[in-house]
Amino acid sequence: MPGTVEIPKEKWTGAIRQVTLGATADQGGSRARTVTVGGETTLPFLFFEGAIPNPPVIALEVQDSYPADWSPVLLQAWGDALRDPATWARKAEELGADLIMLRLRGVNSNGQLTTTAQATATVRAVLQATGLPVIVRGPGQAERDNELLVAVAEAAAGERLALGLCEDKNYRTIVAAALAHGHLVIASSPIDVNLAKQLNILISDMRMPLDRVLMDPTTGALGYGLEYTYSVMERLRIAALTGDSMTQQPMICFVGEESWRQKESRAASGVPAQWGDLEKRSVTWEIVTATTLLESGADIVVLRHPKTVGVIRNTIRKLMAQ
């Protein structure tokens, strides 16, 4: 046999920061265990040229009131668990989630604004129901996010929650609250390497240690901008590995939220026959979105459907097999 093929390896100089979510009783929280993400010194799952000390993890989304606007496929899969965030979180843990992502909708099912007391009560109930580390997201409007997340940060002091989303127009209050009460933050930017970098710099300038910052590059679902997210994540990861310090945060992708929003995941009738069965199509939509983003560097994928959790758990196990 003529010679051996010499495998080209990249000599990466940078590494992704390790970020730990959750704190146990010893560490000032009440979590049964903590979850650490990041630490990669190579591109996703390329063990032949670098280390991937922590596997990507799965978060399941829980909301603080009944998500009547969700796809019928999700409503059916979860059933009555959706009516109580604590029950919902417990079931998510049973299904094999590594993290709970609690979304505060900002209004309850009667259309009334959530009070800070209600929000903190929900967070406490979820923390009691599960031993997993918890991510808490606000409704997505600056004023309401600040109001609710500040109260949550204080009520859950020391738990090392990840709070979000911090955006360039609204990050100071959330970062300050996270700093004061021992939490992490999620920095969110609209599918752009430089904006992601800039926000990390701004957050770092507030003296937030970078091992407490996760990065949300903004997720586009399959068929709805997935390729933009995919490429921005590859670019961010390559920049990080080549030593650009302000891009070295682990990445979180809100896969379920984006995937289940789309018509393909919701519409059973009035769509072409070539789309196939709604349930299978919609779950596949989430599976394919999650897989593709794991391949481009996602450290945390936030999912919605119970079945996707099993499939993606299995996928991560296989990708991590050296």
Partner: peptide, 30 residues
């Protein structure tokens, strides 16, 4: 599901031909 995951990887990572063993429009379309 395992097949579709592997196929998705191959689409993004460098396959020229992807030979599937199942056909279902609900999977083919994604």
């Amino acid at each position: 599901e395992e097949e579709v995951v592997a196929a998705a990887q191959y689409v993004a990572k460098y396959a020229g031909i992807i030979v599937l063993d199942h056909f279902d429009p609900a999977v083919a379309y994604p």
